[in-house]
Design a binder for these strands. Structure first.
Lengths: 216, 216
DNA sequence: CATGAGCAGATGTGATCACATAGACCTATG
DNA sequence: CATAGGTCTATGTGATCACATCTGCTCATG
C-alpha cells in the first residue's frame, strides 16, 4: 500500500494540480464539446487515485465546466444556442462593469501590456491557432479586469469563460476570417482617451462578436 | 463492511442529499459567518462516510458558499465590506437583466403569486424571523426570474445569493426596522404596468438596499 | 504568573476495495 | 439479415484505512 509516493510535490495537493490542469484545458478550448472523461482515465494520466480525480471533476461540474449525465458520466458540455446567448449576455453585463471599474486605474503600463498581448492575439489568428487565440484573447481581458480590483466579479467572468471554453474552440475552429482584433484596438483607444461610454461599447461588442459568428 | 445500507433512498445519491441540505442552510442564513464545519461532523450528522461529505463540501467551496483555509479547514465565509459591495453589484447587474427578460412573459398568475409570497415576506419581518425572511425574499425573486427562461443567468444569481447567505443573516439580524417590503410593491406595480425602466430601477433598489443598511 | 515546548486528539488527504449499474458487444433466433 | 436478449467489461459511488499535519491543551520552567 503506497500512500505518499511523491514527496517532491508537497507544495500543492494532488487534486489541486489535476483541477488546475483540467480547468486550463477546458477554458482554453483544448477539449472538444461533448468529449467524455472518466475518473480512472484522469487518475491514470495524472498518476493519482480516483479520489483526487473525483474531487477535481466535482469541482469543475459545480462551476459548469463539465456536464454530469444522469448516470454519472462526465463530459464537456454541448451548449444549445440559447445557452450560448445567455452566457454571452452574462459576459457583456459583467465584463462591461469590470472594464468600467478598471478605467480610472488604467495607466500607461497597462495599456502597453494590452498592446503587447494584442500582438500575440493577432499572431495566433494569422497562424489559425484556435487554442492560442483563445488563451491570448482571455489574457487580454483578464489583464484589463485585474485592474478593477473586483475579485468576485472577475471570478464570475472566468466561470463564464470556463463554461464557454469547448464551444469557443468549436466556434473559432470554423472561423475563416483572418482579421486582426478590431474591438481590442477600440478598447485600447477608449482606455487612452478615458472614454467610458466608448469603452463600454467596445467591450460589449468584443464580447458578443462570437455570437454574431454563430448566427451568421 | 457495510456498503449499501439504505436501499430506501436510491433515488438520489448521498452526496447530493448532503449537498442540497448544506446549500439550503447556507443560502438561507441558517449558519453564521465564520462557522466551522468538519467532514467527519457532516458525515456523522447525515449518517454517511467522509466521501460524500467531502464531495459536498468541495462543491460548495467551488461555488463560493464555503471558505477553505490554507490548512484545509472549511467554514462559512466572513465577507469584507468590499466583497459585499461587489456581490451586491453583481446582483444588481444580473437580476435587473433577469427581471427585464421576465417582464414580457409576466402574466396575472405570476403577479398573484408574487403578491402571495410578499405577504409571507411581510409576516416574517413582523415576526423578526431572519431565516424565514431571507427564504421568502429569495423565493420572491426566484419566482420572478424563472419567467425569464434563462437558466444560466438564474444559476449565477443563485450563486451570488449563496455566497451572501451567512452575511445576510448577520445583516438582517441587526436590523431594527419592521417596515414592509416597499421595493417589492414597486416591482409588482411595474410588472402590472409593463413599465420596464421602472422595473429595472425597483429591482436595483431592492437588491442594493441591504448595502445601505451596511453603510448606515 | 506568564510563556513556551510537547503531547494527544482531531482533521484533511489520498489509496484501495466492494458493489451496483450502464453501455457495448456478441450471439442466437425470428 | 435484423433484432432482441444476455453477458461482460468499464465506470461511478461510497466505505474504510493509513498517514501527515494542524490545533488546542497541559505542564514545566523562567
Amino acid at each position: 500500500m503506497m500512500v505518499s509516493q511523491r514527496p517532491s510535490e508537497v507544495s500543492t495537493s494532488a487534486h489541486e494540480r489535476v483541477y488546475r490542469t483540467l480547468r486550463s484545458r477546458i477554458m482554453y478550448g483544448e477539449i472538444a464539446p461533448g468529449q467524455a472523461l472518466t475518473l480512472r482515465g484522469i487518475g491514470r494520466e495524472f498518476e493519482v487515485s480516483m479520489t483526487p480525480a473525483r474531487e477535481s471533476v466535482r469541482r469543475l461540474v459545480a462551476e459548469g465546466a463539465l456536464f454530469l449525465s444522469s448516470s454519472g458520466r462526465v463530459s464537456t458540455p454541448e451548449l444549445s444556442n440559447e445557452r450560448i446567448e445567455e452566457l454571452a449576455a452574462l459576459r457583456a453585463l459583467i465584463e462591461v462593469e469590470l472594464a468600467s471599474r478598471a478605467l480610472p486605474r488604467a495607466h500607461m503600463a497597462l495599456i502597453d501590456r494590452l498592446q503587447g498581448i494584442n500582438m500575440t492575439v493577432a499572431e495566433m489568428i494569422s497562424k489559425r491557432d484556435a487554442v492560442g487565440y483563445i488563451r491570448a484573447n482571455l489574457e487580454f481581458h483578464r489583464a484589463l479586469y485585474l485592474r478593477a480590483q473586483a475579485p468576485a466579479m472577475l471570478a464570475m467572468a472566468e466561470t463564464v469563460w470556463l463554461q464557454m471554453g469547448p464551444t469557443m474552440r468549436a466556434l473559432y475552429g470554423r472561423l475563416r476570417r483572418t482579421e486582426p482584433p478590431r474591438n481590442h484596438k477600440l478598447i485600447i483607444a477608449a482606455l487612452k482617451a478615458g472614454d467610458e461610454p466608448g469603452l463600454r461599447l467596445a467591450v460589449r461588442s468584443d464580447v458578443t462578436q462570437g455570437l454574431r459568428m454563430l448566427a451568421g
